[in-house]
Amino acid sequence: MTTKLHPALIAFTALVFVFLIGPLIIVVGAALSDTTYLTFPPQGLSLRWFENIFAISAFRRTILTSLQIAFLSTFIALLIGIPAAYALNRYRIQLPGWLSTLFVLPILVPELVLGFSLLKNVAVQFNAPIYLSLVVGHSLLVLPYVVRVISASLASFDFSIEEAAISLGSPPLKTFFTILLPNVRSGVIAAFILSFITSINDVSISIFLTGPGISTLPIQILAHMEQFFDPTVASVSVLLMALTVAVMAIVERTLGLTFLAK
């Protein structure tokens, strides 16, 4: 038997979910409108604003850049984050306690401050290329997710399995790929997806690090909105939502969606 809920609470919750999902449905409607201005409900159905995204070279370019940056920074974060998470769990006693706090810092420090500091003290100081700065900024942005999610899945890993493999003569790297990695597979997938989505959607770091010629999609959307308030932005938004749906479908297939609520 579960606790009975008061009808007023149920009605309130229903309204909250209308509030949460409604605006996104409105964006989809606005994207499909045939008009040159933003309106809802859509007047006449058309996909012309989706075609318009790809007609504007700045959108084509930034979509590509955003995807590249998201893949690269996620890959880098996994590359350095997985060993770090492993060390934090396996050698907990040998390593100082502040180390795990260090990896939470990118969440604790406001993104805007990180973006500005990277621009001022790294990009400008060392004349770093824009693309490189973006990759560095985004890798740092997503690193905490990788360390945290992998750590969580390592917490239930029995390290004696690994020791058994090593004592039976398995070389360390082989042990890593055949014993450890398969056991934290779901953690790696979750970390990858969280990182990828976080990078694709980032504004606060990218706004400082993008520059002439190289920009990311959210920054290009902001720039476009300053000049035009047409349904193009709505259709780009729909593309981004489609990406989110795809990502959620992957999570659902591999881990089950309740995973995200943890």
Partner: peptide
């Protein structure tokens, strides 16, 4: 309901702010 809450969370801040501009 959890899916319905996660979906806006994974949708970017620009898209969600833009919705309120409309």
């Amino acid at each position: 309901l959890i899916i319905a809450a996660v979906f806006p969370l994974l949708t970017g801040v620009v898209v969600r702010s833009f919705a309120w501009m409309i």
